[in-house]
Computed example of a mutant assay.
Amino acid sequence: MTKKTSARLVTIGALAGVAALTVAMPAHAETEVAEPDTFTSAFTVMATPDQVINNDGVAAPGQEGATGTFTFRINSELEIICYDIRLEGVSGDYQSPAKTATHIHEAAAGQPGPPRIAFPNPEPVGDGPRTSSGCLQGPFTTGVEADGVDTGDGFSLAEIEANPAGFTGDSHTVDYPAGVVRGQLSAIPVGGVDTGAGGTADTGTSTLGVGAAALGVAGLGLGAAVVVARRRQAAVR
């Protein structure tokens, strides 16, 4: 067996390993994940209809008697935000140009601003309380574009930690498209929050990555084994 053939077999095994390892691709939008062990900050929002404004910054009160309580816990190092959202006194279905109707906007009090994170809408839709909880990991997308770029693109949770008053939580319905309730984020002690936020860990990618890595190692091992066997046969001859 020639040296050229041996090198070719090793190369084939190595390429099999590399190809297998590239199967697990990073997420390009927020992913539902399990709650992390620690948080770097926590925030609350007391959302009411009288704080709602439209895109021109003009007061556009939401549904009378409606309230919203938003609790956010953040691990900015991992880009994970856990949320507990509860809406009461809200009727009608949701409506928004974004991919969901419940958001964090980058907007100071009394000012309009783009959505940065879109959360699953609280359920069930009806006249009773609506709730939504879980954890999302960036990068984040909203489905709304400004100058051809998604308004969640490049957003970091550290921006909320640096200026929570510059962000607002809200939700939008068919009857109140500007917002059914709205309120500014306010910092609270991290250890003082006991919520039901959680979520299902997205183990599909990690499991696939481990399997792919194992396949890659097997490919490398197979290539090496073939080379050794051929060399032994040549030595016997």
Rank of each mutant, 00 (worst) to 15 (best):
M1T: 14
R8P: 10
I12Q: 09
A14K: 11
L21V: 15
V23S: 03
V23W: 07
A24H: 04
T31W: 02
E32Q: 11
E35D: 11
P36S: 03
T40C: 02
T44M: 13
P49K: 10
Q51M: 12
Q51T: 13
Q63D: 03
A66Y: 01
S76I: 03
E79G: 04
I81W: 02
I81Q: 02
C82H: 03
R86L: 15
G92R: 06
D93I: 04
A98W: 01
T100Q: 08
G113F: 00
A118G: 14
F119A: 07
P122H: 10
V125A: 14
G126Q: 08
P129C: 12
P129T: 07
R130E: 03
T141D: 11
E145Q: 13
A146H: 13
G154K: 04
F155N: 03
F155S: 05
E159S: 07
E161W: 07
T168M: 14
H172L: 06
V180P: 01
Q184M: 13
S186T: 12
I188T: 15
P189M: 09
V190E: 12
V190W: 13
G192F: 09
V193L: 06
A197M: 12
G204C: 00
V210S: 01
V210Y: 01
A214K: 04
L215E: 00
G216P: 08
L220E: 01
G223E: 11
A225P: 10
Q233W: 10
